[in-house]
Amino acid sequence: MARILTFSIFRYNPATPEIPPRLQEFQLDETPNMSLFIALNRIREEQDPSLMFDFVCRAAVCGSCGMLINGRPGLACKTLTQDLPDRVTLMPLPVFKLVGDLSVDTGVWFRHLNENLEAWIHTDKVFDPKAPEERMDNPLAHAIYEAERCIECGSCIAACATANMRADFLGAAGLNRVARFLIDPRDERSPAQVFEVVGTDEGVFGCIGLMACDDICPLEIPLQQQLALVRRKMALAALKGK
């Protein structure tokens, strides 16, 4: 009783701009527990060796296979065809630079983001490799880890109405990153200093609250809570006159 699935896949190769972007259909017999990772690799092996898409880990760790699956951003490796209808439309993630077909460059975008946010621990303490590590209580370590789980797949950015309209918007991944450093006691930046970077329309006040990021995050990071935390801290910093 195997279904025949029809994949309608976005095709465009920037190396051949004379061929306009188009949707190409492929048919495939469904096998048990088939993921889009398996389906796309079979299409590439059996039907069209030029089909471009990205995969590395096939286990929702690397974040390279984000794409629009029937209009919804998600990880192709984590999406089983049994949860999809007979017809599946696959498009590359918007916002990011298109490499070709379903492959996009999220790396440049996230590098820019992390450099902008200076997403590393800022401290004046000199590191002593021989000193015992400073202790951190478990709930705090867990809270930092929760934000650290982001694999930078770009799904929340692609799903975000503001990010689609505003090229410089930090998006949920960026604000989650801010939250991670705001709660980390090792980072000596004050909320006022963070406000300088994110207390703008490109930052925390650009969000219009649609919360698609929270709905679709493949890692189920509580992005709404993270956003609320950053907003609360930033509003306080603003009220205190920085």
């Binding site: 190769n13 190396a15 051949t16 590439r44 060796p49 030029s50 089909l51 471009m52 490499v99 492959s103």
Partner: peptide
């Protein structure tokens, strides 16, 4: 040999 054109970031060419 390649079956496709090999133009651009072509996965068949990589392979």
């Amino acid at each position: 040999r390649l079956r496709s054109s090999g133009l651009g970031p072509n996965p068949e060419l990589f392979a």
